Amino acid sequence: MSKVKYYYDSETLSYRKIERKKGRKTSIFLLSFLGIVLSGFLLMLVFLNLPNFETPKEKTLARELYNLELQLELLNKKMAQAESVLDEVAERDNNLYRVYFEANPIPEEQRKAGFGGVNRYKDLEGYDNSDLLISSNKRLDILTKQIVVQSQSLDDIAKMAEEKEALLKSIPAIQPVNNEDLTRMASGYGYRTDPFTKARKFHFGMDFTAPRGTPVYASGDGKVIRADNSASGYGNHIRIEHGYGYESLYAHLYKYNVRKGATVKRGDLIGFVGSTGRSEAPHLHYEVFKDGERINPINFYYGNLSPDEFAALLKKSQQENQSLD
């Protein structure tokens, strides 16, 4: 049984029965239903847009992730610059340094080879940016290997340069008597007339005519292996071992300025012109040996003669005249 409700009417000063209007229940039902629908719609909107709503912690992590991606991109740009510079160094290494020192170039596949075998980047798999991380790490590893290869190559070049420098210093490359001290270049390498027998025979050195006491200089770095007068015909003479198969000999000296066993540098004063031994007049008899064989000294005066001086000396040395020893 439904409850009857009353209200107090102030005009009649009596209670009156509340009459329910027709359709009120329907209106209440419709309003309730509409409210439920609207609430559901609002909940659906919230649910659909939930990913767009971030907590402060999520925002912080997102910023950190963006910063890491930016730093990784900058790192890749720096690696690209390093690769460009390294390619230029490799180009000079192969086509300049190694050519100069007569060394084989390093193959491109050796310089830029990757790493075979096990998967070195397995720990980087399974992330949103795994491809970027793996490619960057591969690139960095290859770049690191290239730097190691290039560093070893430059170490080799430095070693070859030291050996080349030692070789260039050791080659007997200067005239042993200064031009201003010369009276003349008396005789060169080749067949000449013997001053004593007047027979034509091969002269294995070069004769530089100069007054007695004229300074004689070492033509290259080396070690004095002889400074005596016990060799037949040479009189007081000095023999220097330069290494790399080269030796030089300075004969008919007046006196020595070095002793056997001494280490000398190119241009050091080693003795003085004389006329000892089998000699007709004061002069320096000079010989150059390579691997035990006498060779023409004229080919080794590039260290202290101008082109014109060398041409004049070459012309005189080719004249078939009488030697002084």
Rank of each mutant, 00 (worst) to 15 (best):
S248V: 00
I238L: 01
R226Q: 12
E241C: 01
K265Y: 14
Y234W: 14
G243D: 10
Y250G: 04
I238P: 00
A231K: 14
Y256F: 14
Y246S: 06
E241W: 01
Y244A: 06
Y244L: 07
H237N: 14
H237A: 12
N229I: 13
N229H: 12
A231H: 10
N229R: 11
N236T: 04
Y250F: 05
I240N: 03
N229M: 09
G235Q: 05
Y250V: 00
H242K: 08
V264H: 11
V264I: 13
H252A: 11
G235E: 12
K260C: 05
H237E: 13
I240V: 14
S248E: 00
Y234T: 14
H237P: 03
N257F: 08
R226G: 06
T263M: 08
Y250R: 11
S232M: 12
D228V: 04
Y244G: 08
Y234E: 13
S248N: 02
I240P: 01
R226Y: 11
A262C: 03
H252Y: 08
R259C: 00
K255C: 05
T263P: 00
I240K: 00
I238V: 07
I240A: 07
I238C: 02
D228F: 10
R226S: 08
V258F: 01
H252I: 02
A251Q: 09
Y254D: 15
L253S: 04
Y254H: 09
I240C: 06
